[in-house]
């Protein structure tokens, strides 16, 4: 029924063509890959794959399809996640019929559209983004397990030695090291060792 209303509005606008519909997230993902639409409107609450998961796949595969998230959740953290996933529109179901047309045309041109009821969250997001850029990745991002590994890296131990000492497999140690490097934005084992030595006293 909800889709009916939406369909009516979209089909009523000569600028748009409705190329397909899907009943769940998986079907939507398949259809998007096949039809490569300009714009995909995804409900957050979809069976099998959620709307955000489909958006994440579109982003990862770098498809040209622009995503509009449709939801009844009026929640800031959800919008933030959606924007992190590169979506171009976030439309609340409350105002879907009136908002969707603007959302589609804006998204199709590469712009961003947010339902007026949630656009206030954008201000918070700007602050949050600023804070995030100012904040440098650091030790507090590491898990307890990663700190354990790092402590042994600081003792200049090899992955094999660390693995033996902690009773885990060397591959696990390697995976932890890779994760630590990613989190701290370090490249190569030398810079990891250097970081470990420099910060030895703080973990």
């Amino acid at each position: 029924m909800f889709c009916n209303g939406l369909r009516q509005v979209i089909q009523g606008d000569p600028r748009f063509e409705l190329v397909g519909e899907a009943a769940d997230g998986e079907a939507a993902w398949l259809a998007i890959q096949k039809m490569k639409p300009d714009v995909a409107i995804l409900d957050v609450n979809l069976p099998k794959l959620t709307g955000l998961e489909v958006a994440a796949r579109i982003q990862k595969k770098r498809l040209s399809t622009r995503v509009i998230i449709l939801t009844m959740f009026k929640e800031e953290d959800l919008i933030n996640r959606a924007l992190d996933l590169g979506v171009n529109g976030f439309v609340l179901k409350d105002n879907a019929v009136t908002d969707i047309v603007n959302a589609i045309s804006t998204a199709a041109e590469g712009g961003h559209y947010l339902s007026p009821a949630v656009s206030g969250f954008l201000v918070n997001r700007r602050n949050r983004t600023t804070a995030l850029t100012l904040r440098k990745p650091g030790l507090e991002d590491l898990t307890k397990a990663e700190c354990r590994i790092l402590r042994l890296v600081a003792e200049n131990k090899t992955s094999r030695a660390i693995a033996a000492e902690l009773g885990i497999s060397p591959r696990t140690v390697e995976a932890h090291r890779a994760n630590i490097c990613t989190k701290l934005n370090l490249h190569g084992s030398h810079s990891l060792l250097q970081f470990a030595l420099e910060n030895r006293s703080s973990f």
Binding site: M1, F2, G5, N45, M72, N95, A96, T98
Partner: peptide
């Protein structure tokens, strides 16, 4: 609530808005 009652209320809201267009 979310998919039944909620969707129907949303529908009511949207219908009202649609007429207002």
């Amino acid at each position: 609530l979310h998919d039944g009652v909620g969707q129907n209320i949303l529908l009511i809201r949207n219908l009202a808005q649609q007429v207002l267009l």
